[in-house]
Design a protein around this nucleic acid. Sequence first.
DNA 1: CTTGAGCTTCCAGTAGCTGGAATCCATATC
DNA 2: GATATGGATTCCAGCTACTGGAAGCTCAAG
Lengths: 131, 131
Amino acid sequence: MNIGEVAERAGVPPKTIRYYEDIGLICPLRSDNGYRAFQPKDLHKLAFLGRARALGFSIEDCRTLLALYDDSTRESAQVKQIAEEHLHQIDEKIAQLQSMRNTLAHLVEACQGDHRPDCPILEDLSNTLVD
Amino acid sequence: MNIGEVAERAGVPPKTIRYYEDIGLICPLRSDNGYRAFQPKDLHKLAFLGRARALGFSIEDCRTLLALYDDSTRESAQVKQIAEEHLHQIDEKIAQLQSMRNTLAHLVEACQGDHRPDCPILEDLSNTLVD
DNA sequence: CTTGAGCTTCCAGTAGCTGGAATCCATATC
DNA sequence: GATATGGATTCCAGCTACTGGAAGCTCAAG
């Protein structure tokens, strides 16, 4: 398989696939013409990566997860720990965004949004206390 | 005021302040010794920026917001539009994270997390359908 | 005079790609 | 055989918003 086909089938852009090879996440064989010659295993790995990235795992997490996947002596506790830490970070991120959202929603609601210059949003931003 | 003091008072690190000058968000005067000589107005701007960034506005949004703040002929509708778009993006981000979180939480729950290799998390990642 | 803190500039690196240029390969048509 | 086109290759640069570090200047205290 050439890069275009795997890209299509794994749902990962060619550019990204080359990048993954650059950073050592995959190392596909090469044909005589210099083209990458992807095996079914590579396709599988790329789909794995695509899914893990879609769940928000970092590239380094993905590297570890791939290694664990390949390691038949792994303990599921190792995988679970990575996932739990990631889950925790997602929760923190959500909380942070929710907090922004609340503030912002109030400000937006308070703003008339008309032709006049008076604006509670700008007032909030400029009224930040300075020690 | 020197950079250390404004950094402290505006709650923005010196490095970040220099960066903001680099990209033209602020342009403080200089003393004879080459040090930046911040005026109260600069401090105010930096606090504004710190607050806007804390609300998640992009640097380019901040640039526009600062300009609107300085423009007495602005219409609050301009500000509101920026804030509404930003709010919308935050909502999308939250929804995306919630979706990740749900999937991940289920997987984590399903994983025993013991010494055995069997792991629903890895199974989910590897069972992604490939056309 | 020396020491240390604080300031300066500049360069590089972070995460995870993405765009673009220049070039090569493969296939089909004329 | 020439050529046109699509897909492949490499490499370099840029994106966001900083952050770390090195080398060197300034200032105040002892």
